[in-house]
């Protein structure tokens, strides 16, 4: 039984609603009380905190999807969409409209993530379905050396797997989060072999670049965003003086270096 994720129309509605909310906030910002225009004001501070909390849901989605305990990954996927969009609105508000400062890059990353995600769902999906029966190498015979290397890789993978997860079968196994947590070195080594095998199969290079790389790009952007948030939090918490640049420090902080 399939659990429905958001149809394209609903996804677009949600995205448009988020964009409208952001634009609207920028339009009416000038007419709002001072606290909504002052970076680090309690109102904007707590808006930022709320935004980050919402944006932790996509992180939780990543963990739930890979952690091995989620019964409803599709539900988590939907939650990651809704919370990301809502978080994006709150982060836009949190920016106070100061878009020429480095933290605005985070907002830009969020927008890029949203655009990429929506494109993948609405347009990229069509490419995905058009992939069926489209790969030219489907029945091509690779050269003997490639085949030999594949054979060696499989043997090597089986050897590693005996240590990494003795109960698993190589043909149906791939490393996941618990493996990385329990045995990172082995997991990484296995992952490297799996990647090499994938390269030899040439299946990713057989599809268009957008189709092949949107998801790695989406994930890379997401991790960059997370890194940016961490830097931002550390900076405003410990380097409040540097951030305030001589102005008043209106937000909660531990050090005013």
């Amino acid at each position: 039984m399939q659990k429905q994720d958001f149809p394209d129309a609903r996804l677009l509605q949600l995205t448009v609603a988020a964009v409208v909310a952001i634009v609207l906030w920028f339009v009416i910002r000038g007419a709002l009380p001072e606290m909504w225009r002052t970076p680090g004001s309690p109102a904007l501070y707590f808006t930022g905190v709320a935004g980050v909390l919402l944006l932790l849901v996509p992180v939780a989605f990543v963990l739930a999807k890979r952690g091995g305990h989620s019964t409803n990954p599709v539900g988590w996927f939907n939650a990651h969409i809704v919370c990301s969009l809502a978080g994006m609105v709150l982060i836009a508000i949190h920016s106070g409209g100061f878009l020429r400062r480095p933290p605005a890059l985070l907002l830009l990353a969020l927008l890029a993530l949203a655009v990429l995600g929506v494109w993948a769902r609405v347009r990229g999906s069509r490419r995905m379905s058009a992939t069926f029966a489209s790969k030219a190498p489907a029945f091509q015979v690779p050269d003997a050396a490639t085949r030999e290397r594949l054979r060696a890789l499989i043997i090597e993978k089986r050897r590693l797997l005996a240590e990494l997860d003795p109960r698993a079968t190589e043909g149906t196994f791939s490393v996941n989060l618990p493996h990385f947590i329990r045995q990172p070195r082995l997991a990484l080594a296995y992952r490297k072999l799996a990647r090499e095998e994938s390269l030899l199969l040439g299946s990713r290079s057989a599809v268009s670049a957008q189709q092949a790389w949107w998801r790695p790009l989406h994930m890379a952007l997401a991790w960059l965003f997370v890194l940016g948030v961490v830097i931002h939090v550390v900076t405003v918490t410990f380097f409040a003086g540097y951030v305030a640049d001589g102005g008043p420090i209106t937000w909660w902080h531990l050090k005013a270096w």
Binding site: D8, P73, F77, R126, M128, S129, V207, Q211
Partner: peptide, 25 residues
């Protein structure tokens, strides 16, 4: 299908391009 989040990695991975995809669902 109840566990599939639609990332499409399986579609990309199959060298026979024999994995289909529901672009609407």
């Amino acid at each position: 299908e109840s566990r599939c989040t639609g990332c499409g990695e399986c579609v990309i991975a199959c060298p026979y391009s024999a994995m289909g995809y529901d672009a609407k669902g």
